[in-house]
């Protein structure tokens, strides 16, 4: 498999994003505003106490800046396939000599790289300068955080991939995508740090893919997990990627079959 067409697509996506500068600056501002509002709410909730249940305010802010930052980076285009089914261009895509899934990943990675550099980093810098963000627990933990964050992206991508594939049957999946995003935002800790979820809820969440998207990397970053736990959590991430991807892939194959039998 030649990589150069995929790199070309990734590059195209990366450069495409830089064309809409105003929108992009607004994105950064919106993330910062969200971040500040959440920090203020928690400051008020803490009401001057230095910690609640062993969770300190800097941990909260660090959780928010990492989760929201990653949320900005992890933004797979949920409408990649639905749009192509909608306008019929899925036909030409299938007749191209490159893998459609490969192209999808390439475009999402191009997007993610752009967001990492021009969205996450500015937000991080602003957060460090204003509210303050804890340093990573150690250099090793930071590297493990990066690894786990990459795996988290994999989980999120797989979810988006699987949800998109339903467009072969449902055509308009706006509502499904919205529900997915609500689940991701609420259950993955980017709105409410999962520390504050009731014990039973956290137990349940451990069995869903959502907590492994943002919360696992954040915990690693803060040094809350032992090496054994990190290995386990990363393995859980890998399992989720594999399982959800496989489900998506089955839908993908069935979807193509449906396209060939019933037409697009």
């Amino acid at each position: 498999m030649r990589l150069s067409p995929y790199i070309a697509y990734a590059k195209k996506c990366f450069l495409g994003r830089s064309a809409y500068r105003f929108d992009h600056i607004m994105d950064i501002i919106s993330t910062c505003m969200q971040f500040f509002i959440f920090c203020e709410i928690y400051k008020a909730l803490y009401g001057g106490s230095s910690e609640i249940d062993g969770i300190t305010m800097p941990m909260i802010t660090t959780n928010f800046v990492l989760a929201m930052g990653l949320n900005a980076v992890f933004y797979p285009d949920d409408y990649f396939l639905p749009n192509k089914i909608w306008d019929g261009s899925i036909a030409t895509e299938l007749l191209r000599p490159i893998s459609f899934k490969g192209r999808m990943i390439a475009e999402n990675l191009g997007n993610a790289l752009f967001s990492l550099i021009f969205h996450f980093l500015p937000v991080l810098i602003i957060a460090v300068l204003t509210v303050g963000v804890s340093a990573p627990a150690s250099a090793v933990m930071f590297l493990l955080f990066l690894l786990s964050a990459a795996l988290g992206f994999g989980v999120l991508w797989a979810i988006s991939f699987a949800v998109q594939m339903t467009a072969f049957w449902l055509i308009n999946i706006w509502s499904l995508i919205t529900i997915k995003n609500v689940f991701v935002n609420v259950l993955s800790g980017s709105m409410i740090p999962l520390w504050f979820m009731p014990e039973w809820m956290r137990g349940v969440l451990d069995f869903t893919p959502f907590s492994s998207i943002y919360f696992t990397p954040v915990q690693i970053y803060l040094g809350q997990l032992s090496y054994g736990e990190i290995a386990l959590k990363c393995a859980v991430q890998l399992v989720w990627i594999a399982v959800i991807y496989l489900v998506g892939d089955i839908l993908w194959k069935k979807g193509q079959q449906k396209l060939v039998v019933q037409g697009g």
Partner: peptide, 15 residues
């Protein structure tokens, strides 16, 4: 894409 970008992409795709 511009027309020439589109063609470059095709060149790349078909090697």
């Amino acid at each position: 894409d511009t027309v020439s970008q589109g063609f470059e992409l095709i060149r790349n795709m078909y090697g």
